[in-house]
Amino acid sequence: MKKPTIDISIGKDGKVKIKVHGVSGKECLALTEAVAKIIGKEESRQLTSEYFGDGGQVRTHGQTESHVRGG
């Protein structure tokens, strides 16, 4: 079974970009949200063909906020 992989880029201004590979659907969303909770606030999200498990592509933009207190 393919293991999920995440590419993370932390820019010099602190902005974080993550790309999740190797999983689709709910598992992909769960991993994305797990990392988002660690960091703080989600600015935008793009779902691509691998997410749907077919050739379709959908783009979404969100302003959700998950403010967590760090330790």
Binding site: K19, V20, S24, T32
Partner: peptide, 18 residues
């Protein structure tokens, strides 16, 4: 890839962490 997400960090923590 299956998902690309852009996040803004919340710098919330105790003074020693910061």
């Amino acid at each position: 890839m299956s998902s690309v997400c852009v996040l803004t960090p919340m710098v919330v923590g105790s003074w020693p962490l910061i």
